[in-house]
């Protein structure tokens, strides 16, 4: 039976999450921000799969399915908001949204 140290899987998930966090904090293009959010959600799913493997259960994969559903719904709504923002401001720069006036 092959074994992988459990912390290596979790460290991979942590690195991917931090890369996504850097992307969210640095980018000004809103499409890139949404893509970095996807990376972060995917990293949390990876952590669940590592936990599922550690305990040999299928529950972690069920949680991954829930995260997948959440990511799909989030992307659909987020891209709809991006289209609406582009119609209003003709730009994908998130700093135009810094002054919300309703």
């Amino acid at each position: 039976m092959e074994t992988i140290p459990v912390e290596h899987g979790l460290i991979l998930a942590g690195i991917l999450f931090c890369l996504g966090l850097i992307g969210v904090l640095t980018r000004r293009n809103i499409v890139f921000v949404l893509m970095s959010l996807e990376v972060m959600l995917n990293a949390s799913g990876l952590a669940f799969i590592v936990a599922a493997t550690r305990w040999g259960h299928a529950e972690g994969q069920v949680m991954f399915l829930m995260i997948l559903t959440l990511a799909a719904a989030e992307v659909a709504v987020g891209l709809g908001l991006i289209i609406q923002m582009f119609r209003r401001y003709q730009t994908v720069d998130i700093s135009v949204l810094s002054e919300m006036k309703g």
């Binding site: 039976m1 074994t3 992988i4 459990v6 460290i11 942590g14 690195i15 850097i22 599922a52 493997t53």
Partner: peptide
């Protein structure tokens, strides 16, 4: 720097774990 701090703390916690996971196909 902020993300590296976060990741450093995470690695610090992870370095105290020493468990192998046996790969079982689910």
């Amino acid at each position: 720097i902020m993300s590296a701090l976060l990741l450093g703390q995470f690695l610090n916690v992870m370095s105290q774990i020493d468990q192998d996971m046996a790969i079982t196909r689910v």
